[in-house]
Amino acid sequence: MPAVKPKPNKTLLLDRETCISCAGCVGTCPDLALDMFGVDLQVFQDKCTYCTICVRFCPVGALSIVKTAPAAPTPSASGAPPAGLAA
């Protein structure tokens, strides 16, 4: 069985205010991590390999890759729910 690499602590961010729904990034993504539903661009984080092609391509700069904090410990281990899930 091949070893499963842990996902790097990165996220592909889409700025919906800037996005002009041109769908150009959909064709450039090698991993099918982007798809257009009507005028709504969807990012599938689980498929993204952070190759930055779409970030470089985007004509308005609506896509970016940001580093995120390492995965929060599970609630059972820390005793409190992760900060992201609160409220």
Binding site: G24, V26, T28, F57
Partner: peptide, 20 residues
């Protein structure tokens, strides 16, 4: 340009970064 239909049938329609 955002063609996915080619990929469904196994064609290499992916556009390499400098060529798009």
């Amino acid at each position: 340009v955002e063609s996915l239909s080619g990929r469904w049938v196994g064609l290499k329609t992916r556009q390499l970064p400098p060529q798009v």
